[in-house]
Amino acid sequence: MIKFYIETNEVAVPTFNSSGCYDIARKDEYQTMEIKIIKSTELKQKPKKGDSLKFGTIFTDHMFVMDYNKEGGWNNPQIIPYGDISIAPSAMVFHYGQEMFEGLKAYKGDDGRILLFRPLKNIERANQSNNRLCIPEIPEDIFLEALKRLVEIDQDWIPTEEGTSLYIRPFVIATDPFLGVRPSDTYKFIIILSPSGPYYPEGLNPVKIWVEDEYVRAVKGGIGYAKTGGNYVASMKAQEKAHAEGYSQVLWLDGIERKYIEEVGAMNIFFKVDGKVITPALSGSILPGVTRASVIELCREWGYPVEERRIDVEELYEAHKQGKLEEVWGTGTAAVISPVGLLRWKDHLMTINHGKIGELSQKLYDTVTGIQRGRIEDTHGWTVEVDSVLENV
């Protein structure tokens, strides 16, 4: 058992607001929170140096679990051996899709420090998703402490080879055994860890992207900005079509006019056009990426004009024809920076920078990964070190 003090974001007895979601009452005081720790007695064999780490296929020895009910709020936080969970077939998550997930990474620096990259931004986004999905907010202090302690316990799983990291997947599922359309009264918050290599098999080599103009992923006013499974299952049909044609991902257009660029299935998207950096504005149907925000900040620091606005795919095609489309890259937790070498829109093939990674894309990758691994000084306060407090647990 480990005790830590948090500035209380304790949930009092929740009430429903006019939109049918929970209002979260708070108390301005401090309380002691206890995480119960049950260490695994059957440790798994860890990957060896040089082993292939396919993204999201290997999982560590432990996971964090915490429950929610209306009477007690978030309670009973535990770190336990990784394993199956028991849940009723009638649990609401299976029938109405009320769930949220996040993704961030831990790195082991050359100096041995364990670093999380911008975890508070992920926690903020998680609670924005929770709010949209009528899931009670998770107190920031509890969330961050859970991340740190779980990573600390399984720190020997953090790979150190170039392009690798410990991927962190927090998620919430609605657990009420009830068939009826309303927010659940009970939830389970879980964090699992996965040592992973590059998200794309191509690594830092430019990927091929299919511009989708038949199916749509999200519309303004919907749940496009929330990180929830419904957005991803909506993308799978187009993804299958793109894979069949030899493309790595789908670039979505808006769901109304089918002409304004939004995001790639697993990434936000950037274009360098005639010296300017352009990315779609956050309009309610695009995920507000943590890496996206970091890239915008870096580009502005380096003196590049950055525009967040609507981008017509016709405008992009015209820029390509005029030789002004200089670089394209995606940003995301999983991929970090992924250069794009080819865009296909209808029958038009747009080759970018002769199919090679661009100078700015490379600089962004080197800078972001350098900060993540502690090789470059973090002047932005983006990294959070995982301190060691569990020696006697």
Rank of each mutant, 00 (worst) to 15 (best):
P206K: 08
V207I: 13
I209D: 02
I209N: 06
W210G: 00
V211N: 04
E212P: 03
D213S: 04
R217A: 09
K220I: 00
G221I: 09
G221Y: 11
G222V: 03
G224Q: 03
A226I: 05
G230I: 02
G230P: 01
N231L: 10
Y232C: 00
Q239E: 08
E240K: 10
A242K: 13
H243Q: 13
V250P: 04
V250C: 09
W252A: 01
W252Y: 10
D254Q: 04
G255K: 10
I256L: 13
E262F: 13
E263S: 14
E263D: 12
E263T: 08
V264A: 00
A266W: 03
A266H: 07
M267N: 04
N268Y: 08
F270M: 00
F271K: 04
K272H: 13
K272D: 09
V273Q: 13
V273S: 08
D274F: 14
K276E: 10
K276A: 10
V277F: 07
V277N: 07
I278K: 14
T279Y: 10
T279V: 03
A281R: 11
A281Y: 10
L282Q: 03
I286N: 03
V290K: 13
V295P: 05
I296F: 09
C299I: 06
Y304T: 01
P305I: 01
E307V: 08
